Amino acid sequence: MDAVDAALEGTVALVTGASSGIGAATAEVLAAHGAAVALVARRADRLEELSARLNAAGGTTLVIAADMAYEAQVREAVERTVTELGRLDTLVNNAGLMILGPAAAATTDEWRRMVDINLTGLMNTTHAALPHLAAAAAEGSRRVADVVNVSSVAGRVAFAGSSAYCATKYGVVAFSEALRQETAGRHVRVSVVEPGAVDTELREHNSPEVQEALTRRFGSIERLRARDVADTIGYVVTRPRHVAVAELLVRPTEQV
């Protein structure tokens, strides 16, 4: 964990999907800014490894194994964060699932799982966190709190072979904007970050054929790295109280 500054000193963040990729990198960035970080994901072993690394660098972490598809687990994760770390200032909804392919060949179980994690899970986590975020904005030294929802380019442009995935990511964008309007007066900022092609494990949920199609689609372009997106999230949540970044689209330079 590289030291950045103390912009988030004394605050607490919760990051979902923190066991790898963008989530793990975001936890590192927020910890480097001084936040205590609750690490939430299904793979507890990965979380423990990340926690040990951040703690060794001087951070404070809390490991919570949870599946975002289950509301009870989501709510327990939020409550444990507040109980054990004392507050909640920043929520990063990053957990996601991407299963691609033609709609006619898909199973509705795959669609349901994506909706449960990408959209419903994100909404449930946010709902559980909102009272605590509002309290942090009203009482904390920074007097502002943040929800950052990780969507995708697929939340702005629909692609063949991605119908259900696009539907969930469009839903994240719409939910984020409506919620932003509701919470702006309380200084709970709501932002949506939309990455383009990122070199993470997300594609590995797909068949070898779909993964090969993705490789052909993006060719030899240099993809974003998880840290690139994490740095973007770090920028969003460290803005002064009067500055809200509502939406950020981040693409690899060569992606069209």
Rank of each mutant, 00 (worst) to 15 (best):
D231C: 12
G121L: 07
P102F: 07
L130Q: 07
T253S: 14
M1L: 13
A52N: 15
V256K: 13
P240F: 07
R189E: 10
R239A: 09
V237I: 12
A134C: 04
N55G: 10
A6C: 00
A167F: 07
I221P: 04
G171H: 08
E254V: 03
A77E: 04
E110Y: 14
L14H: 00
E177F: 00
T125F: 14
A135E: 14
R216C: 07
A158P: 13
A178Q: 01
T108N: 09
E110V: 13
T60Y: 05
E212F: 04
G10A: 00
N149Y: 11
V188L: 03
A3V: 14
N206C: 07
G10C: 01
V144M: 08
R239V: 04
T108P: 02
E212W: 07
R53K: 12
S141D: 13
L119N: 08
A197T: 08
G171P: 03
A77T: 10
Y170N: 02
R53Q: 11
A135S: 08
V192S: 11
S152G: 07
A105F: 12
A137K: 08
G140V: 04
E212R: 14
E71N: 12
F175N: 05
G96C: 09
V245G: 00
I233Q: 12
V15F: 05
L122Y: 08
T238P: 04
K169L: 05
T107C: 06
A27I: 01
V15Y: 01
V210W: 01
R43T: 12
V173P: 09
L249D: 00
V148D: 00
A18G: 05
A57I: 09
K169T: 07
N124Y: 14
V193Y: 08
P208V: 05
